[in-house]
Amino acid sequence: MDFIVANLPYLLTGISVGGQYALIAIGYTMVYGILRLINFAHGDLFMIAGFIMVYASASLPLYISLPLVIILTVVLGVLIERVAYKPLRSAPRMSVMISAIGVSYLLQNFAWYVTGGLAKIYPEIPWISDSVQIGPVSTSRITIITPILTIVLIIALVVLIKRTKIGMAMRAVSRDFETSQLMGININRVISTTFIIGSFLAAIGSILYFSRYTTVTPTIGAMPGLKAFVAAVFGGIGSIPGAVIGAFIIGICENIIKALGYTTFSDAFTFALLIVILIFKPTGLFGEKESEKV
């Protein structure tokens, strides 16, 4: 019993961190599903969302700055697609990927320029940062809210994809661009929708993440971005349930490793996991086999 009580905070943190990774991972996996593109700029979009909140909350009340963060992040996400990816629609995949890396550095350097490289303190959001008591364990409310909110958002997303017309179009476009066009589907609109959803979830993920790890720096997007990417690969890139399960597994494992006293190795674990997956199951837990049907 003592062992459980002692380690319960780590487990709760793991679930919570897993939820944050999941929100970012969905952006990677959905964009990959439709464009077959690893959007390297996604982690940096998450970082920019953090800075928007820092600057917005400095002069605006929370009830304005929170929605503003979400809206601006979505606008930026869609803008990145329009400017950096759309003109390359018929270019080789490698060109688009290089463009994505370029956007990633552009965003980071823009953040350096604006902040002067200094870490900024994320504003404290009342209520969600309060501490609560779960049985014998005391933790902040955000630890509890994160997984619940994540799961609610994911259920909403799955309903959207399975039950709505735009969701059906997204599934069709992910399978076959040309035939989707022949059905009268405007693929650019479908792609924009994908970026709207991915950026929206990244903005929520950023609010939850930075409310816990309160400093924002220009390179802060790299680590959570990479881990979310590993989660997406682990679950099978292109698969939403895969990304979510992968994210929770990575979040929980990392924190269990910390609980066991090997904090130094918690990041190493994630990337070792990536290597192992790529060797033994390159398509991930739920990934489709790449088979071109003739």
């Binding site: 017309k165 059906m168 179009a169 599934r171 069709a172 992910s174 399978r175 076959d176 059905m183 589907i185």
Partner: peptide, 16 residues
């Protein structure tokens, strides 16, 4: 669309 049901394939034909 192999990843859609027969019914959904037909529905998507009437997309517009």
């Amino acid at each position: 669309f192999g990843n859609l049901s027969v019914y959904e394939n037909l529905r998507i034909g009437a997309y517009l």
